[in-house]
Design a binder for these strands. Structure first.
Length: 870
RNA sequence: GCGGGCGUGGCGGAAUUGGUAGACGCAGCGGACUCAAAAUCCGCCAUUGGCAACAAUAUGUCGGUUCGAGUCCGACCGCCCGCACCA
């Protein structure tokens, strides 16, 4: 009874050492067992982790350990998304090298992760900044290039003229660089692109095969790809100068509204706009004004529609009046053809534009039930269902019918030997620009030669390594101003040439790392056999913030790797789970400065003060743990006070894993108490029944009841973990601990312990330990020893459950009368419907209500419920 | 604006997918043990009425489908997320 307390601080490092020494988590590719690949999104080595970072690793670990117990050969690796801008910023701020900073952070974070007792195969650890990793990435880049999946073109970027660097959209604040404060310019730079837009259709179709992805993520990707069906329509210019193109091609999803068109609008970036602007200063000025118009979302949102009348007119392809051609700031060059026809009556933007410039607004779709005479301006623009009016041969048709009729007519209407209209599918998805004017990334393995153009670096010269001797004391890309690095001879003609000094977007690094893990350590980074063995990842776990870019890029990369024969799967991640964040209250002192949780004392009266003072503290609502708000809890402190098992248990408890979960002292204390409780339950069991026993030939009711509970626990928690419903699994373990505790108490009070109950108690303890082992592995090992079991809990199999013990032999059915619960009845589990009805009709409550009459109806739902309708 | 999701005790949440609403935990209250405290153990804990058995009301609001609705359908209210001039 007087068992000592479980000492997590002593036990946890000890078991971690045992696992490590025995190489338990070292995975071999030639292992004959069925494979299971669990992966959590690898972290950026930013410095230190807090307990909030641990949640998805712990979830992945539970799955990995559970699958291991279930007999799978589990791959559960870890690595570092190690390239990126923060390392360069740190280099500037601390006068250090990005590599040094990065590797120091990796060492710190690796040690912190190891503290959590994760079942990771550290031998496969990778960092994307390792030349062996990025060298392979350069090889892949060149293979993609050769196969036509990479190209180079001019593209507009946000250019910071002070820092001499390209800025991402989110680094532009109010039109200025976030660091330098300089006015950002739009510049055209030659950039490398991955041809992801060509894969739009297959990326879209592939979503349907990803059945174990959240619908939400699939929907977000579907919207991002943005497929639409429409029509390309050619409009012939009436009065254009001879030197420019004589027609404008427009993309529309609403060809049915063609008779409602009142203008054409070109994007400021449209080739015709540029051609016209060449000798039209006013137009040129307008285009520049549009360019300056800012890039931030807020600015775009509030920007007023602006247009410039070019004076040109186009013919209406269906014989309507001629239409004026404008250049308009709201027309995107990147989408469709960069030119639109405006139908003000049925589109908000066109409506705003037409209203401003006094263009005609002709309704051509009449809403159902509306009257043509009374349908007026006040209900415009209207974009709902309806019937065509004022539209010649389309009058009276529905919108879909009219779309079809216009498409059919324009397809056959010829102009210069080509049809005027052509059905077209359009995508919102644009090509993936990967050029970054930065040092700390994967060098793009290209040499620029004045004679030969861009030339791939020959295979034998890969990897193109980053130079170590770089300085960050001047703005701009250190690669670009390095004295020697970029000066090489052209691999083609041998004449002096320049290296590409751009590096790749770090999203490239994370687009194939899951395939790298498949290869054994110290082997070629991307081996087809190994990748084919392990891919797809069976369970991928990470944050919802990667729902679109990372996951879409990885899908594109995997498909493209397949096309060049490097892997055999289409999709990298068969199962995806997006976990919620850990949130924590925030604290501010009276001066408004953020405080760490350990600097705050909570008084019994509900107020909070600064530790050791009477200074009041303002408690803010729970928010995502972040360094800047100091609402973080370091894993070291948790491990020291409660142990990591308690932290793991707490993170898995209560809140469904996809939702945000609040970290509280009460919560971690509760988890810690439960660890002690398990420890006592196991200790008490062994004290009462010291020896392992054979299965008894028969069991008394108490022993059978306990055995049923234990077997159900094993079966149900297995199901919960398979479905990643960790909070439900935790609740079940709690409930079982209650039942088990009662059984133990009863057994202790009895004068003698019957062998069948002794067996049941030991079995219960062992099942309990197995059920918690994936979640609190250190405690499980310690209990395993107490139970006198050979080997390690981590290597134990999941308990075999007896099907006979998973079903009860009697069942208690609630009895409803007219849908209200009035009684219940206990019948044999295999009772027939007739037998159940008989038992129900014999109940006092039922007899009283019926009062001699026959019931209208009796609904018997086997094993569930009975409803008597009177 | 478009698209999606969610609303259950003081709190986190559960509910076998249409079948006993509130499992389990946290907090709270009462008790046992103790010189005392901690720890632990036992009990109570949606609301209203009742000594009680019990009854009535309860899953954001209103309506509908059904023998039966937290779950399905419609409208509304509130919150959250994604996209955003995508023609």
């Amino acid at each position: 009874m007087s068992t000592e307390r479980y000492n997590a601080r002593e036990a946890e490092p000890r078991w971690q050492q045992v696992w490590d020494e025995r190489g338990i988590f070292r995975t071999r590719n030639d292992d004959p067992r069925p494979k299971y690949y669990v992966l959590e999104m690898f972290p950026y080595p930013s410095g230190r982790i807090h307990i909030g970072h641990g949640r998805n690793y712990v979830m992945g670990d539970v799955v990995a350990r559970f699958k291991r117990m279930k007999g799978f050969n589990v791959l559960h690796p870890m690595g570092w998304d190690a390239f990126g801008l923060p390392a360069e910023n740190a280099a500037i701020e601390r006068n250090t090298h990005p590599g040094k900073w990065t590797y120091e952070n990796i060492d710190t974070m690796r040690a912190q992760l190891k503290l959590l007792g994760l079942s990771l195969d550290w031998s496969r650890e990778i960092a994307t900044c390792d030349p062996s990793y990025y060298g392979e990435q350069q090889r892949i880049f060149l293979e993609f290039l050769k196969a036509g999946f990479v190209y180079r073109r001019e593209s507009e970027v946000n250019w910071d003229p002070v820092d001499n660097t390209v800025l991402a959209n989110e680094q532009v604040i109010d039109g200025r660089g976030w660091r330098s404060g300089a006015l950002v310019e739009r510049r055209k730079l030659a950039q490398w692109f991955f041809r992801i837009s060509a894969a739009s259709e297959e990326l879209l179709a592939g979503l349907d095969t990803l059945e174990r992805w959240p619908d939400k993520v699939r929907l977000m990707q579907r919207n991002w790809i943005g497929r639409s069906e429409g029509l390309h329509v050619r409009f012939v210019l009436e009065n254009a100068p001879y030197r420019v193109e004589q027609e404008i091609k427009v993309y529309t999803t609403r060809p049915d509204t063609l008779f409602g068109a009142s203008f054409l609008a070109l994007s400021p970036g449209h080739p015709l706009t540029e051609a016209l602007a060449a000798d039209n200063p006013a137009l040129k000025g307008f285009v520049e004004e549009c360019r300056r118009g800012g890039t931030s979302t807020a600015e775009i949102e509030t920007q007023e529609k602006m247009g410039f009348d070019t004076g040109l007119k186009v013919r209406h392809p269906l014989g309507g009046p001629h239409l004026p051609v404008y250049v308009a700031n709201f027309v995107l060059m990147e989408y469709g053809t960069g030119a639109i026809f405006g139908c003000p009556a049925h589109d908000q933007r066109d409506f705003d534009f037409a209203s401003k410039y006094g263009l005609p607004i002709t309704p051509v779709v009449l809403p159902p039930g509306a009257d043509e005479a009374s349908f007026g301006m006040e209900s415009l623009p209207y974009d709902g269902e309806g019937t065509l009016i004022h539209s010649g041969f389309l009058d009276g048709l529905s919108i879909p019918e009219a779309k079809e009729a216009v498409a059919a007519r324009l397809e056959t209407q010829m102009l210069g030997g080509e049809p005027v209209g052509e059905r077209a599918v359009n995508y919102r998805l644009r090509d993936w620009g990967i050029s970054r004017q930065r040092y700390w990334g994967c060098p793009i393995p290209i040499v620029h030669c004045d004679a030969c153009g861009p030339v791939p670096v020959p295979e034998g010269e890969l990897p193109v390594r980053l130079p170590e001797d770089v300085s960050f004391d001047a703005p701009g890309n250190p690669l670009d101003r390095h004295p020697t690095w970029k000066h090489v001879n052209c691999p083609n003609c041998g004449r002096p040439a320049r290296r590409e000094t751009d590096t790749m977007d770090t999203f490239v690094d994370s687009s194939w790392y899951f395939a790298r893990f498949a290869s054994e350590p110290d082997t070629a980074p991307l081996q087809k056999g190994a990748a084919d063995h392990w891919l797809a990842v069976d369970q991928y776990i990470g944050g919802i913030e990667h729902a679109i870019l990372h996951l879409l890029y990885s899908r594109f990369f995997t498909r493209t790797l397949k096309k060049i024969g490097r892997v055999s799967v289409d999709e990298p991640f068969a199962g995806l789970f997006t976990q919620g964040m850990i949130v924590h209250e925030t604290y501010k002192d009276s001066a408004g400065k953020w405080l760490f949780p350990e600097e705050v004392e909570k008084r019994p009266d509900g107020t909070s003060v600064k530790v050791g003072t009477d200074e009041p503290v303002t408690v803010g609502p729970p928010e995502k743990m972040s360094k800047s708000k100091k609402n973080v809890v370091p894993p070291e402190i948790v491990a020291d006070t409660y142990g990591v098992d308690a932290a793991r248990w707490f993170m898995l408890s209560d809140t469904p894993p996809e939702r945000d979960s609040e970290w509280t002292d009460r919560g971690i204390e509760g988890a810690w108490r439960f660890m002690q409780r398990i420890w006592r339950l196991v200790g008490d069991t062994v004290a009462l029944a010291p020896d392992a026993l054979a299965v008894p030939p028969a069991c008394a009711p108490e022993a059978t009841a306990l055995r049923r509970a234990a077997h159900k626990l094993a079966a149900q928690t297995a199901d919960d973990v398979e479905r990643l419903r960790f909070n439900v699994a935790v609740a079940r373990v709690h409930a079982f601990a209650n039942v088990f505790g009662d059984a133990l108490n009863a057994a202790r009070k009895a004068p003698a312990l019957a062998p069948d109950l002794a067996y049941a108690l030991r079995e219960a303890a062992e099942f309990l330990v197995c059920a918690i082992a994936p979640m609190v592995p250190h405690l499980a090992e310690e209990c395993w020893v107490v139970l006198g079991r050979q080997g390690l809990a981590v290597e134990a199999g999941w308990p075999e459950t007896d099907p006979a013990l998973l079903v009860d032999d009697t069942v208690t059915l609630p009895i409803q009368i007219n849908g209200k619960r009035r009684a219940d009845v206990t019948v044999p589990a295999d009772a027939s419907t007739a037998e159940v009805e008989q038992a129900v009709l014999a109940l006092d409550a039922v007899i009283q209500v019926l009062d001699g009459r026959a019931p209208k109806r009796i609904i018997v739902v086997p094993q569930r419920i009975v409803n008597v309708v009177v």
